[in-house]
Amino acid sequence: MMSKIVRTQANFLYPLILIFGFYIVMHGHLTPGGGFQGGAVIATGIALVVVAYGYEKIKRWIKKTHLTAAEGIGLLCFIITAFIGIGTSFFYNFLANSGLIFGESIPYGINPGYLNTAGTLPIMNLAVGIEVLGGLGAIILYMMAYGREVSE
């Protein structure tokens, strides 16, 4: 556990980092970024809180099993979304221009910033974001849990 200044800063920055990462994930089809980048940002927030509070205190709040489960669920959602369009081909974008959820059309040209577009791409971005935050968070927690024992 680090000093009170670091813990106060971590308390202040943790929700902002999570919101920023979620913004990057959900706007992956409009702005630069996407599932991998947003998931890495959210995992950075987890790393900040783990470093500020220490592993012994944080392991009751963030569990490794939950993060590894999130990783598996994200990868499974990604593959299932890819398989739904298998009537045409694997990874077929069956929601684009269909009028359903995320199904609006866009004009050719400059980016107007409509969120309800792009078919299956936001769903895949969300799945990959969940997978990456689970994977990187699990790696951070594994290293915090077992790294000290090896160095002694």
Binding site: I79, F91, N93, N97, S105, I106, N111, G113, N125
Partner: peptide
């Protein structure tokens, strides 16, 4: 074709989805 304004994302997740599956 993909109704996505970000062409990079449409390539990564739609045209070359197998590549992203391998990365995951």
């Amino acid at each position: 074709q993909t109704a996505s304004n970000n062409v990079v994302t449409s390539i990564v997740f739609d045209y070359r989805g197998f590549d992203t599956l391998g990365e995951a």
